[in-house]
Simulated scan of single mutants.
Amino acid sequence: MWSVQQNEQPSADDIVVDLLVTAGRLTRLAGAISEDDVPRAVLRALAVLDEHGGIRVSEFARIDRCSQPAATALLGRLVTDGLATRTRDPQDSRAVLVELTPAGRTRLATARRAFAAAMAPGLADFPLDRLIRLDTDMNDLLTALRAVARGRQ
């Protein structure tokens, strides 16, 4: 938890750091205990394309914080596997947009369901209303932070 003294109130920064660490740990735990074998990089790529729609390779690389050659190779693998398509960017005929195919959406949904199934036994005694509240709160937080992110783009 927060790295503050017991009697001190944590700062918003301390709480956000803890939320980010916990979210990352939850994701890694789900991947480790899930029977789905999709590589983390592939799952991340599918999730980025799902969230952002058709995007340029350079934008994907920025979002995923990888090099453009690494993004090109990863997205090329998704295209080869039928999970994404490349189309000409209508704004710039020299560029391409990469987006999920229906098979890519299905693959992402399958992996996410496998993660949920793997975690379900650990949540059997966790109150449903608390899970709903956590989900709502995390989505509210995401909405607020997306507004900040839009201001930086």
Rank of each mutant, 00 (worst) to 15 (best):
L75I: 03
F60I: 12
Q91R: 12
G104A: 03
D92Y: 02
T101E: 00
S67K: 04
T85M: 15
L46I: 04
A41D: 15
P102E: 12
H52W: 12
D37C: 07
A47N: 11
R105V: 10
A73Y: 00
H52M: 08
R94K: 15
V48C: 03
L83S: 01
R77I: 10
R65Y: 00
A103F: 00
T106N: 02
R56L: 01
L100D: 04
E59A: 07
V98P: 00
T101G: 05
S93G: 06
A41G: 03
R94G: 05
A71K: 08
D36V: 06
L43F: 13
S58L: 00
Q91W: 03
T101N: 05
A71M: 09
T106D: 13
A109R: 14
T101V: 02
S93A: 11
F60L: 07
R105S: 14
V42G: 00
R112L: 15
A111F: 06
A84R: 00
G54H: 06
L29F: 08
A73C: 02
A32V: 07
R107D: 01
A41P: 02
G53H: 07
L49S: 09
E35G: 07
L97P: 10
R56Y: 01
A103W: 01
L108S: 08
A47F: 12
A114Y: 05
R62E: 14
R56Q: 02
A84H: 09
L29I: 06
S67Q: 04
T85D: 15
A103R: 08
V79D: 11
A45M: 02
S93R: 12
T101S: 03
R113L: 09
L100K: 07
L100S: 03
F60G: 12
L74P: 10
V57R: 06
V42A: 12
A41M: 09
L29S: 09
I33H: 08
A84C: 13
D89S: 09
G53Y: 11
I55A: 06
L29N: 06
G76T: 00
A116N: 05
R44G: 02
R65G: 11
S67N: 02
T110N: 14
T110H: 15
A70F: 01
R28F: 13
A41W: 00
D37E: 04
S67R: 03
L100R: 10
I63Y: 03
V48Q: 01
R113Q: 09
V96T: 15
D50H: 12
A111N: 05
L43R: 09
R88A: 14
Q68G: 10
Q68F: 00
R107G: 08
R56P: 00
T80G: 14
V79E: 15
I33S: 08
D36H: 05
T110E: 13
R88W: 06
V57T: 11
T87C: 02
P90F: 08
S34L: 04
T85I: 14
G104T: 04
R77G: 14
R56F: 00
R28E: 10
L49N: 01
L29M: 10
G104N: 05
L97T: 04
T85S: 15
R56T: 01
R112G: 12
P39Y: 06
P39M: 07
G76D: 09
V42E: 13
A73R: 11
V57A: 02
S67T: 15
A41R: 14
D50N: 01
V79W: 14
R113N: 03
A95W: 01
A41Q: 15
E35F: 07
R65A: 12
R44S: 13
R94T: 12
I55V: 10
R86Q: 10
S67C: 05
H52C: 12
